[in-house]
Design a protein around this nucleic acid. Sequence first.
DNA 1: TTGAAAGCGTTACCAT
DNA 2: ATGGTAACGCTTTCAA
Lengths: 333, 333
Amino acid sequence: MAITIKDIANKAGLSPASVSRILTNRGRFNEDTAIRVRELAHSMGYLKNQSAADLSQQKSRIIGILVPIEHTNFADEIIKGMQNKAHEFGYELLITFIDVNESQQIQTVQSLLSRQILAIFMLAIDMSPAVFKLLINSKVQLLSISNQLDSQIPSISSDNYVMMKKIVDYLVSHGHKKIALIGSSSQFPIVAQLRRQGFIDGLAAHGISYNPDFIWGTTLSYQTGLETIKHFGLPLPFTAAIGSADIISIGLLNSAKDANLDIPNDLSIISIDGTELTQITRPVLTTIQQNFQLMGELAITTLHENKFTEEKVIFTKTKIVPGKTVAINYESI
Amino acid sequence: MAITIKDIANKAGLSPASVSRILTNRGRFNEDTAIRVRELAHSMGYLKNQSAADLSQQKSRIIGILVPIEHTNFADEIIKGMQNKAHEFGYELLITFIDVNESQQIQTVQSLLSRQILAIFMLAIDMSPAVFKLLINSKVQLLSISNQLDSQIPSISSDNYVMMKKIVDYLVSHGHKKIALIGSSSQFPIVAQLRRQGFIDGLAAHGISYNPDFIWGTTLSYQTGLETIKHFGLPLPFTAAIGSADIISIGLLNSAKDANLDIPNDLSIISIDGTELTQITRPVLTTIQQNFQLMGELAITTLHENKFTEEKVIFTKTKIVPGKTVAINYESI
DNA sequence: TTGAAAGCGTTACCAT
DNA sequence: ATGGTAACGCTTTCAA
């Protein structure tokens, strides 16, 4: 049987109430006895029973994190950012991987909900309607990170529309006019829509009308990148391509190599995300880097400061990190 | 206020005890009333308060997973395997990332321990002594995955000694006699020791005496791989190198490319782990693949069947997956 | 098959 | 500053 507050109270000649106040630093108590109690607790090897505390307080300090099981590597960076701040403010992160199986999703979410969770953060996830309903009804604080969902649910992400315009500006300033967007042609997530619109508007701002065929590929996968060259055939009808995720860009790079293309002279590539994965390719990828770690930190601090009622949509900055995969296109100049 | 068992009991004209028995499928009850109660619970939107249940039972179904924050990507595969089985048996996984900061490690472990956890699984982790002591004293079931610790603690991993001999056999059968081992020269983890010994004994079995200088690199990092060529200088004194982790092998591959070496003709590379990362390089890496997903599944099933008292060390099989980075070394034939 | 009641460990209110 | 005690929601033993 483990040591309880009662045991400490007995040994200290105090009531459980006092010990509780001291150990949680709540309410009034004498600092001298406090020192004694803390000492005692430590020497007796006391460990708080968090279930009892949660039950008593009808709430916990747990934040549930939903991560897609096929998670892109940037999820780790977001979690890292959250972890830093969570530790600082005394939150616990309950990380759960969810897969596409809806019944499993529901079970997972319910098991989170049954612990009087403080909030649920969703990483790059598009919910199925059933799960969505479950979450909405649960009244816990929701937050979508690196993706935007319903406008009701607060989100932290990059401004995908603006980001895409920045990318187009960058490529156009390097002489590119025929540009492809790979991996953002699906209807969901909303991020894909925003990116498409930013892409189209970005081109239009330079007086370039976009070619619908150049928006291709539905999934953010290596395979999508790998199939790009084959899909369009040689010679490629564009001089630059935007990979909607690092793993796509790597696939694209590899398929270009397999087709004996010279990167960046035969094809310029710029990658969205800019995780460390982009540093291990040859040539090193030019990217627009999202600040995932900051997203994670903001998620926690904003929750902690209870700011989600005021700010529904929070953007973090992106920056272009030049690598060796974008060349100047002299032909069009 | 959320719906409780009492609310259901009232509405059903039963006692809380009966409702509890029905909802948990424990003890005896009338199947007809059971159907009614389950129906009622569902329609009222009942959600079990798990903290209360854990408190009452003085235990939980939570398994704590400790993952190094700089985790290699195979951690995801292990977790995936665990997740499958955990779902099947009704366990909850509480995944926590721990970093090198010891005080943070202690806090993390304590927060796990304060939830009457069922077991703690450690992924590729070497504990600091303080944390180790904490865990040992806690009496929870411990398990080390993909690493071996103290012989007291059960582990699931590949047989690193045998694996290394297999690698050596493979390289020798391809005509290599001068072989380097990159990234396993540190004292810890124990895995590194086992690999070194397997390497030395594997060579000895072929009558090759090993060159201590060829065991180089302490960390399992990209950087280690990247610095290998520079460290040894050109021409390389060996014809084949073993990367102790995929990320090392990729670094090695890149530094070889940067030095204008022709892989595999100027240098053969074989990588340990064989995660999907090895498929996105050019040329594709030859690897010895560990079965991480199976490790994860075995972790859960062995716990579930309470077999850890019988079997302390469980090995999963490894297999060589040929890529394009090992060539036959004709010179030595 | 069902119910009453005690108990899990902590917290918080109200007294003192 | 400290103590007594009810309460949190669920489980379990024992009795009916």
